[in-house]
Design a protein around this nucleic acid. Structure first.
Lengths: 211, 211
DNA sequence: ATTTTATGTTACCGGATGGTGACATGTCAA
DNA sequence: TTGACATGTCACCATCCGGTAACATAAAAT
């Protein structure tokens, strides 16, 4: 008792499908993407794998369905960036950049599933990665838009290539966050510590002084 | 005829070992790291897999040996950066940064095995990734050292945190290069085209204007 | 010439994988 | 009550995996 659907747990297709999809996400997050196989999913869902084929066709169909659950996985940090910048100092290009780096890092660090997805997108091309890649691209453009707008308010005459700049910075934060899972140091910096990330954020912020 | 060791191909342990190790690198580069298994290696080397166990113990032993062949895989671009900067414009913090980005990108782009390794290091922790990670770290520190020295000559009074800055930039270039293998656009930029990379390099260079 | 040793091959093992057919049973309509 | 259908289980398949024992043979040592 106490199970998700202990009463209707039997012969309830909806509940079963939900358990299967949850098992996929659970496996991805905790065991890694190559642990997501028919047998493993069925076992973790506590369900016969035949049902997976019946309800989702094949593994790709399951993935496609599971991917729908991932809408919203990509972080929208625009709000938090502004909060952060206003919190510790007044809003400025420097604080904007510093907080972008720090909040971006935090959102990746706090989200194991997102990290798994970012790596997966580097290695596989399937229904799931295509969708999450798309979502990420949209969210990145939003983020860039917000940054551009704020920067234009602060420095109306600047002609910074914000998309290119943010592409490099977010890519850098992504890579360093992912890397910190397996290796502690990168270029001598401790990328597992807040101090290391402070240095990175400060270095990035420092560059905005030219405005 | 024409084969590497057609004359001594039979019952020549050295030659056989070399073929096995080559098969590992070949598979990694062309099929990806999870294609590297005992059976696949033996098949590609045209050799019975029993020999792999006899000569290398197990898969990890093979990996350790193969990793030795990877010394030198990490690019040293210090020289080319200076060449590049002197070529198109005079040496300056801006040109230094621009050429660092472009040369770094080129070296990753031109080296499929390096790209595979970079991804692998994000997902697995074994004898091979530990070694290549170490090598990369050393090379990154050298690169940082060279950059710092040049920058100190150009702007003796600057106090830029070069390690932190280069960590973010190289990480960004790595991620975008890896990503371009599977997705064409990132943040609206075409990361498969030279134009896209020009924008990124320019954006990074632009930031150095504050010096 | 004979034995020993190193090199190489064949055939097999247990286990995991993705996938399918046959069967059991709860649910609901006629 | 009876029959149709959806839901779920069990047993099995071929295939691949890493790993090993047994055997064959070329080369070197005696």
């Amino acid at each position: 008792m106490g199970d998700d659907t202990s009463q209707t747990g039997k012969r309830d297709r909806e509940s079963t499908e939900r358990r299967i999809v949850s098992a996929v996400l659970d496996l991805m997050e905790n065991e890694g993407f190559d642990a997501v196989g028919i047998n493993a999913v069925a076992a973790r869902a506590g369900v016969s794998k035949v049902l997976i084929y019946r309800y989702f066709g094949d593994l790709e169909g399951l993935m496609r369905t599971a991917a729908e659950q991932l809408r919203g996985i990509t972080p929208d940090i625009s709000l938090r960036v502004v909060e952060c910048a206003n919190e510790h100092e007044q809003l400025s290009p420097e604080s904007l950049m510093r907080c972008t780096v720090l909040e971006l890092r935090r959102s990746v660090e706090d989200n194991p599933l997102l990290r798994r997805l970012l790596v997966w997108e580097l290695t596989e091309d399937n229904a799931m990665t295509r969708l999450t890649t798309e979502l990420r691209e949209e969210s990145g453009l939003d983020q860039t838009e917000a940054f551009s707008r704020l920067l234009a308010e602060l420095r109306p005459d600047n002609n910074t290539d914000v998309p290119a700049l943010l592409a490099l910075v977010t890519a850098g934060v992504f890579f360093l966050s992912l890397r910190s899972d397996s290796v502690r140091y990168f270029n001598g910096l401790d990328i597992r510590s807040d101090e290391g990330w402070q240095r990175i954020a400060d270095a990035a912020a420092d560059l905005m002084r030219h405005l």
